[in-house]
């Protein structure tokens, strides 16, 4: 059986006295993909921040690759790729400089060539020398996804990756997710509404105030075509 990449047990998060997440369980193995669906403000972004080890849960436990995030060696974070609401890109550096910087940070050999390959992969080769602050939201999102995936991580966490994306962008993200799953990475992403990616067996969960529940309303699943129509 494939390695358990992520295991969350009774995760809860409080901001002061206010509960944001409560009693959340989730297990994901290598090669599996899950989408977490929820309305605005339900805690999807908070959950992603907890699952990547950036923000500790107020209660419950989390293991990434069998270790609690705070006890993981920094080198282990090479295996985790994260896209948050903020792009985590330096607005006053160009696309190329941002990708080269992160490639160097991840100690990827020949950072320049690696950055160039990823810029081509996400269709930003023509914008390579533009400052990130000059990019459109959709282009910045593409670059943010490239940044998250540049080290071929084994666990990929994407917070609303389809937000601000045009049709080509949605197809690009879908193909990157398929490629990641093909090399046995585990992928979790969040979305406002249920959706499907062709050729991907997605486990769908609904995030509500009482926790994470498997999504049962199959009739409401939308294809990417529907997602595009909604956008």
């Amino acid at each position: 059986m494939a390695e358990v990449v992520l295991q969350a047990q009774r995760i809860a998060k409080f901001f002061g006295e206010r509960p944001v997440l409560y009693g959340l369980d989730l297990t994901l193995r290598a090669g599996q993909a899950a989408v977490i669906v929820g309305r605005n403000g339900v805690g999807k972004s908070t959950l992603i921040k907890i699952l990547c080890g950036l923000s500790p849960p107020s209660a419950g436990r989390l293991w990434l690759f069998g270790q609690e995030p705070r006890s993981m060696a920094a080198q282990q974070f090479r295996r985790v790729g994260v896209l948050l609401h903020q792009s985590l890109l330096y607005p006053r550096l160009t696309c190329r400089e941002n990708m080269e910087f992160y490639s160097e940070l991840f100690a990827i050999p020949d950072a320049g060539a690696h950055a160039r390959r990823w810029l081509e992969r996400v269709g930003l080769q023509r914008a390579a020398d533009e400052l990130v602050s000059a990019l459109s939201r959709g282009m910045e999102q593409r670059l943010g996804i490239a940044r998250a995936m540049l080290a071929d991580p084994d666990l990929i966490l994407l917070d609303e990756p389809f937000a601000a994306m045009d049709a080509d962008g949605v197809a690009l993200v879908s193909s990157l997710v398929r490629e990641a799953l093909a090399r046995e990475a585990a992928v979790i992403f969040t979305a406002h509404a249920p959706l499907e990616i062709a050729g991907v067996d997605l486990r769908m969960f609904k995030l509500e105030s009482n926790g994470l529940t498997p999504f049962k309303d199959e009739g409401r699943r939308g294809s990417l075509r529907n997602l595009l129509r909604r956008n």
Binding site: C52, Q76, F77, R78, Q86, S87, L88, Y90, L105, V132
Partner: peptide, 11 residues
């Protein structure tokens, strides 16, 4: 743009 988080999520 939350770049500090990018550093903390790097090896």
């Amino acid at each position: 743009s939350g770049c500090l988080r990018g550093l903390l999520l790097s090896p």
